[in-house]
Simulated assay, not measured.
Amino acid sequence: MALVSSTGLLNDARKNQYGIGAFNVHSLDMLYAVAEAAYEMRSPVIIQTTTGTVKQLGADVIAHNAKKASELYPVPIALHVDHCQEYSIILECIRAGYTSVMIDASMHPFDENVEKTLEVVKIAVPLEINVEAELGKVGGVEDEIVVEDKDAEKAIPEECVEFIRQTGVQTLAPAIGTAHGIYSGPPEIDFPRIEKIAQNVEVPLVLHGGSAIPAEEVKKCISLGMAKMNVSTELKNAYSAALQKHFEEDPKAFDPRSYFLKAKQEAKNIVKEKMELLESSGKQQFQRV
């Protein structure tokens, strides 16, 4: 099957109170690991790449392999560029075949965020490509974007309503107290804020900074209206740790087929774990090939 837009996936997830895992991949090996895990779990999935990964691997190469993965593993797979601040990169991804894009203009004043988001919406939505935007500022480090804790700002519910009205954006990532990266202490998630936003907007909400959030807090976020959870650092760390362990145990075992297989399996384990947590496993029917 072909790549799909994330719009329908996320609308169904919000309606039926489960979550879709969105996994940042940094290599083609990781891309196939996510697709394989989704197939084995009978789960829809969103494969994500950062702007840095697009620049390193190329949008065409990533999209070609994501399309091939969707043929090999026929579950609903969307391809998304995450936290993109560059209009030219978004256009490159759209032309290559991405089915979802995030324009992150959250560092700008509200009106400028609206203007930059609307630019992307006007191009992407007629092509049935999902558009995600952010309000507030999620702390931590995501690829080339660094937001210090002191600069993190939570989204204002009333602004979320007005932002969606003015832009028509289909997916919204409001800052609600999570952070990118692995937490040094328990995340301080603002559940009343999530609830108030969700009560006043119909679009699916996105939980950024999903790595290592306690399971019970993830479930509460989903029950309140979050439909998509981003996972990056936890997946990347598990993949890298498997490589490190391989060479610690056998420093002379240089066959890439051996150590990449181990890393790929660890990545799949993380993806499957998150799909179980989000209750997306078994949510989509598909035919074996």
Rank of each mutant, 00 (worst) to 15 (best):
260 F>S: 12
72 L>Y: 02
187 P>C: 15
158 E>K: 13
20 I>G: 06
267 A>C: 12
205 L>Q: 04
265 Q>T: 13
210 G>S: 11
74 P>E: 06
101 V>D: 05
87 Y>I: 13
92 E>S: 15
139 G>V: 09
44 P>Q: 11
46 I>Q: 00
156 I>L: 13
258 S>Q: 13
242 A>F: 03
104 D>E: 08
27 S>A: 12
2 A>W: 01
140 G>F: 06
107 M>H: 15
40 E>Y: 00
66 A>V: 06
117 T>A: 09
207 L>C: 12
281 S>P: 00
201 V>S: 05
199 Q>H: 00
287 Q>A: 12
23 F>E: 03
116 K>D: 07
21 G>R: 08
235 L>H: 01
282 G>W: 01
84 C>M: 05
112 E>A: 10
142 E>A: 04
164 I>E: 01
217 E>V: 00
22 A>E: 01
33 A>I: 08
154 K>I: 14
114 V>R: 14
255 D>F: 09
262 K>A: 14
217 E>N: 03
157 P>E: 11
181 G>V: 11
126 P>D: 00
108 H>G: 00
129 I>L: 11
163 F>P: 00
226 M>G: 06
72 L>E: 14
124 A>G: 12
30 M>E: 14
14 R>C: 07
19 G>R: 07
210 G>I: 13
105 A>E: 04
205 L>E: 07
253 A>W: 02
230 N>H: 10
159 E>P: 03
149 D>Y: 02
128 E>L: 05
160 C>D: 02
271 V>E: 01
213 I>C: 02
275 M>V: 11
215 A>K: 14
111 D>R: 15
254 F>V: 11
77 I>K: 02
74 P>M: 05
64 H>R: 15
68 K>I: 08
150 K>S: 15
173 A>P: 04
253 A>M: 09
91 L>W: 03
130 N>C: 14
83 H>Y: 07
216 E>C: 08
179 A>K: 14
222 I>D: 03
265 Q>G: 00
116 K>H: 13
47 I>K: 09
256 P>C: 09
196 K>G: 05
265 Q>N: 12
281 S>N: 14
158 E>F: 03
143 D>W: 02
206 V>Q: 04
276 E>V: 15
170 Q>A: 06
256 P>W: 04
51 T>G: 11
24 N>C: 07
115 E>H: 15
280 S>T: 07
205 L>M: 13
17 Q>H: 13
32 Y>P: 01
21 G>D: 06
64 H>E: 15
226 M>D: 06
99 T>R: 08
68 K>H: 08
49 T>V: 15
14 R>G: 06
284 Q>H: 13
240 S>E: 09
50 T>W: 05
204 P>C: 07
100 S>R: 11
268 K>S: 09
211 S>K: 10
46 I>M: 06
19 G>P: 05
189 I>K: 02
